[in-house]
């Protein structure tokens, strides 16, 4: 399969008044055309920052400090803003988490769709409007002609997210980064959108990075999954491998705490302790304070091991047989 995106050793950090925070630390992964990669982690794990790094949307005081982001074999890191802009929305699109916030409340839908078309293609307004209309129809918005003249607040949350997805699809991008796009929606609408997004990606062979804190959503959607903890990628592999045979204790804990894997009437299983603050991370494995397998070896940063093809884990004592 053709590789669409390869991220190598990405490091993104933010300068705060309490010191430098490395939100993304030495992260590497790749996505092929038509493939769906799920990035899973709790809030603060750096998954959103990873997504913004790919689009070059890290604003000061944050910056990409190292690594490469190879999009179709071109390195996006350090690309000047005007070149980067040509990629955004055109070849790499993004869908945000909260559909209530992503559309400008004081501009009509057609204004926002048409400006997206005109940002990259020199076409007349009639054509641009036509394409905007078609895009709305494509994501399942009924009577798109009438809805074009509406303001965002006249749409429900699910409809707004469809509009945002329509904007992402306008230029048939090679890669879409979706940052928790269904988290804020009702479960039924979430299911519809997941299904449609999956279909659209497979049909147009678009690579998709689906960022989520919800392992069960990713399990049903993605081909491969990458798990992040405290800025580092701790484990990745195919969905089946990782879910059935997790090798990192954190992944194992995540799977174990899914409600469906718990026995009725028993207290929910949970990972003891709290997510560490990125500010005062000490050397070594960030998970060791919560890890049942931690020992002296965990005081040093564990290396990435490749136990099988397409499988990576960053742990000094990986669970060999897997299972939770």
């Amino acid at each position: 399969m053709a590789e669409t995106l390869r991220v190598e050793n990405l490091r993104t950090s933010f300068l705060t008044k309490w010191g430098e925070v490395t939100a993304v630390d030495d992260v590497s992964f790749s996505v092929d055309a038509g493939e769906i990669l799920g990035i899973v982690g709790e809030s603060g794990s750096g998954k959103t920052v990873t997504g913004f790094s790919i689009l070059g949307l890290i604003d000061p005081p944050g910056r990409i400090k190292g690594g490469r982001i190879l999009f179709q074999d071109e390195d996006l890191v350090g690309l000047p803003e005007n070149r980067m802009r040509e990629y955004r929305g055109k070849r790499i699109a993004m869908v945000f988490q909260d559909p209530m916030m992503t559309l400008n409340p004081v501009l009509r839908i057609d204004t926002q769709l048409i400006e997206s078309v005109l940002a990259h293609d020199k076409v007349d307004r009639v054509t641009a409007r036509q394409r905007a209309r078609d895009a709305l129809g494509q994501v399942g918005i009924p009577s798109p002609d009438e809805r074009l003249a509406s303001y965002p607040h006249q749409f429900s949350g699910g409809m707004r997210q469809r509009v945002a997805i329509a904007m992402a699809l306008l230029h048939r991008p090679a890669l879409i980064v979706a940052d928790e796009p269904t988290t804020a929606l009702d479960v039924t609408i979430q299911g519809q959108i997941l299904f449609e997004v999956q279909k659209l990606c497979k049909e147009s062979r678009t690579a998709l990075i689906w960022i989520s804190h919800d392992l069960s959503v990713v399990a049903g959607l993605a081909d491969r999954v990458a798990v992040m903890y405290a800025g580092k990628l701790v484990e990745q592999g195919s969905v089946d491998d990782v879910l059935d045979r997790p090798m990192h204790p954190y992944t194992s804990g995540l799977i174990g705490s899914l409600p469906s894997n718990n026995i009725r009437g028993q207290p929910l299983r949970q990972i003891p302790g709290m997510t560490p603050s990125l500010l005062n991370l000490s050397a070594g494995c960030a998970f060791r304070t919560r890890c049942p397998r931690a020992d002296a070896a965990c005081l040093e940063s564990p290396p990435v091991s490749v136990p099988a093809s397409g499988r990576e884990v960053r742990c000094a004592h990986p669970l060999v047989g897997g299972g939770s």
Binding site: L57, R88, A93, D98
Partner: peptide, 16 residues
């Protein structure tokens, strides 16, 4: 606001 970041993510020029 998210809509400003989203506008940039759509590739709009900074001016717009």
């Amino acid at each position: 606001q998210d809509y400003v970041k989203f506008a940039r993510a759509r590739g709009l020029k900074a001016r717009r």
